[in-house]
Design a protein around this nucleic acid. Structure first.
Length: 646
RNA sequence: GCCGCUGUGGCUCAGUGGUAGAGCGUUCCCUUGGUAAGGGAGAGGUCGUGAGUCCGAUUCUCACCAGCGGCACCA
């Protein structure tokens, strides 16, 4: 007798081993139709696998993420089958599930053409229509190797050969297609929804190692139904419209020139935004007792040898030579400011009573990023970090981190960004003694528990830097996309390399740990993120132009110019266009430039001594007094409100 | 860096083995217009760079540069 416990706690009894399918069928025919797989005592299993002992069973359908992921996985097999049918001789490698879909890596001599994707999609639909049963098999290792060798699937052979000796070798067969796979899968190809779309072909290294050959990867997205697929595709379209590279061009914010790949030009409007962000940053950091400095853009190799960059980071640094410079005197553009800050600290004898010392800098730094890594403002070769290095005593770790978290809160709230903390713990290749690590990690955990609440932050095990644990901040933008921005890293190494010391209470010299930290991350990247987050419609305090005056006709231009002057005198960024145009045209142009307020000036306004304001959300306010308008803009500006009106 | 794709006036893009076209923008003229494009005329391009094939290359081939999508990288 086998007792099956269902999610509603009811018990079903069977005389002989049953499959998930049998159970689903007994519950209802509809459930059987919708069933994708089961969990048996929490473990995902195929619908057809016999259950031989008492167990708690849940039927998995497309309503759950597990269910959709199983379908995605099956679709990757269906795609592989379609590819092998259409392009005989193509070898298959791996095809996992990813967020929103799946991919499969193929080894094929000729590159896939773009219109091949449509052909493959069509064939996949046919395979779904064939409704092939999907059968799980477990084979001895030798048999599996032999099987794939005969098929000429050398990658599969490699995978099996690298599996541990005691691994169960399972295969799934659908029609003529058999793949090595852990499963589980749908019981038949016909259960897969046709709500999928193949998105792109891309290169990918075999086993993710750049020393290996390139395979061709086909990406697909897949959902439980058409509606969700459509919603996803709409989201992608929306994201494309918000692309900061497009908006940056349309709004004249920044520019990239082929003579300086990865090095942005900030155009006047973009620079305004940049300066406003930095101004806010400086105000807050002054309040928080940071000491800003600026250091040289380049240092001789001596510095980089001390810091360890010469050995570990040289390939990513720009080296500088000059006439008659001896070879051992090479200079390098700084890829970060940490070593310079160490020098600052060492300029004087420091006392325990001086700590914490918070040195900040926003200098330009250079990193020779791989050409293929460059991506608008998101990945550049020349940028500014809102960096700071805080020298503390070990006892101050907890307190200082909690100050940092408070500062971070203030910053991200201003932009209406949600964020999440991620705690990275000691990696295997750590340096320093384990006791210090343990103390530091415990301290960080306490702060995180306090600040975020227990379990309210993600833990990335063994993902810390080799020199200390770290807390990263990732934020979610208006479209729900995640970006890594801020980072707080504890470092016991660099102060050691530079021999940083302070005089402790007892008169002994001690080494201060250092916190490396950034809130924006890089100003460039952050501006890219903000551009996409706001789709170019920046909050009033960040808008390069806050008000555009629109004269109804040329005879109102003089009054318009006077109005611009008044607004400027009040500290508002205002402008009027040089060209005459119809009022309709001007409204459209102001709207397209995402200017928060358009002020319309014509006979009506001049006669009544008022203004008419149309904001970028198309709200219209007529008969407003100029003073009221100025007061509103000033208040919205100084409060850094995300709204346009009080 | 690797795989694939792309590169045509300021912008977005069409097109062709016989040295190029549209819309927007820009300039000038007319219009002085009241809430998402008023009308007309003109200027503007050695078709990314270099080499090759060809009688002839923007078009085909190769190399390089840059961009895009991924991969790898990202203290």
């Amino acid at each position: 007798m086998i007792k099956i416990k269902l999610p509603d706690n009811s018990i079903m009894e069977f005389d002989a081993p049953v499959s998930g399918m049998d159970i689903a069928q007994k519950i209802s025919e509809r459930l059987a139709l919708a069933a994708f797989a089961v969990t048996v005592d929490g473990k995902l299993t195929d619908l057809t696998t016999p259950i031989t002992t008492d167990a708690a069973v849940t039927i998995i359908t497309s309503k759950t993420t597990e269910g959709v992921d199983i379908m995605r996985h099956t679709l990757s097999h269906i795609m592989a089958q379609a590819v092998q049918e259409l392009f005989p001789g193509t070898q298959v490698t791996i095809g996992p599930v990813i967020e929103n879909g799946f991919y499969y890596d193929f080894a094929k001599k000729e590159p896939f053409a773009l219109d091949d994707l449509a052909k493959i999609e069509k064939r996949m639909a046919e395979i779904i229509d064939r409704n092939l049963p999907i059968e799980r098999m477990e084979w001895p290792r030798e048999k599996a190797i032999e099987f794939f060798k005969n098929k000429g699937e050398s990658y599969k052979v490699q995978i099996i050969e690298d599996l541990p000796a005691d691994a169960v070798i399972s295969l799934y067969r659908q029609g003529d297609y058999t793949d090595l796979c852990r499963g589980p899968h749908l019981p038949s190809t016909g259960k897969a929804a046709k709500a999928f779309k193949l998105m792109k072909v891309a290169g990918a290294y075999w086993r993710g190692d750049s020393k290996n050959e390139m395979l061709q990867r086909i990406y697909g997205v897949a959902f439980a139904d058409e509606k969700q697929l459509k919603a996803h595709l709409t989201l992608l379209e929306e994201a494309e419209k918000r692309d900061h590279r497009k908006i940056g061009k349309a709004l004249d914010l920044f520019h990239f020139d082929p003579t300086a790949p990865g090095c942005p030009y900030f155009l006047p409007k973009g620079l305004k935004l940049y300066n406003l962000l930095l101004e806010f940053w400086r105000q807050e950091h002054d309040k928080a007792d940071y000491l800003e400095f600026t250091g040289p853009l380049m240092n001789s190799r001596v510095l980089w040898e001390t810091s360890g960059h010469w050995d570990h980071y040289k390939d990513d640094m720009y080296l500088l030579t000059a006439n008659e410079m001896p070879e051992n005197e090479v200079y390098a553009l700084k890829p970060m400011s940490c070593p310079q800050t160490m020098i600052l600290f060492n300029m004087k004898t420091r006392s325990y009573a001086d700590l914490p010392i918070r040195f900040s800098d926003v200098d330009m730094i250079h990193r020779n990023e791989a050409s293929g890594a460059l991506n608008g403002l998101f990945r550049v070769r020349e940028f500014h970090q809102d960096d700071a290095h805080i020298f503390i005593t070990e006892e101050q770790i907890e307190e200082e981190f909690s100050r940092l978290f408070a500062l971070a809160d203030k910053f991200y709230k201003v932009f209406g960004l949600k964020y999440q903390m991620k705690f990275s713990t000691r990696p295997d290749d750590f340096v320093g003694d384990i006791e210090t690590w343990n103390k530091a990690e415990a301290a960080l955990r306490r702060v995180l528990d306090n600040h975020c609440g227990k379990d309210n932050y993600q833990i990335k095990d063994k993902d810390g830097a080799f020199y200390g644990p770290k807390v990263d901040i990732s934020m979610t933008d208006a479209l729900g996309r995640e970006w890594q921005t801020g980072t707080f890293q504890l470092d016991f190494q660099l102060p050691d390399r530079f021999g940083c010391k302070y005089v402790d209470k007892d008169g002994n010299l001690k080494m201060p740990p250092v916190i490396h930290r950034a809130l924006y991350g890089s100003l460039e990247r952050f501006i890219g993120i903000l551009t996409e987050h706001f789709a170019g419609a920046f909050p009033v305090w960040l808008s390069p132009v806050q008000v555009r005056v629109l004269p109804v006709s040329d005879k109102h231009r003089e009054a318009g110019a006077a109005l611009v002057e008044k607004l400027k005198a009040a500290g508002i960024r205002a402008e009027m266009e040089r060209q005459s145009n119809t009022i309709g045209y001007q409204i459209r142009a102001a709207h397209e430039q995402k200017i928060p307020y358009a002020v319309i000036l014509g006979d009506k306004e001049l006669e009544s001594n008022t203004i008419s304001v149309r904001d970028r959300q198309n709200n219209q306010k007529n008969g407003m007094s100029l003073d009221d308008f100025i007061a509103n803009v000033k208040e919205i500006d100084s409060s850094k409100s995300l709204n346009l009106w009080k």
